[in-house]
């Protein structure tokens, strides 16, 4: 079970998607950080959105219907 203050990441199909997600989360004032996709998660050369586990509902509410999320999972 993941604790509420541990990190999760949202992975996207492409950096264009991640950039759109960043713009929307900023507009909605959802706290997050853009980080390079960790190599243990994907071999993609892009970026992903890192957020605290308890912000997951806010992230999902903001992004659903706006940009496809390929995967949401714990950072570690």
């Amino acid at each position: 079970m993941i604790g509420p203050h541990e990190y999760m990441v949202a992975i996207f199909k492409s950096v264009s998607h991640a950039m759109k997600a960043e713009r929307i989360l900023k507009e909605r004032c959802v706290p997050f950080k853009l980080i390079p996709v960790p190599k243990h998660i994907s071999s993609d050369c892009g970026v992903c959105i890192r957020f605290a586990a308890d912000a997951r509902p806010d992230v999902e509410t903001a992004l659903i219907g706006e940009v496809d999320i390929a995967l949401i999972r714990p950072l570690v």
Partner: peptide, 19 residues
Amino acid sequence: GRSGHRLSIEAGRTVEEAR
């Protein structure tokens, strides 16, 4: 869209803003 460093991210933002 090619790297995860700050300048690449900034370039990505520039493109997304235009989109």
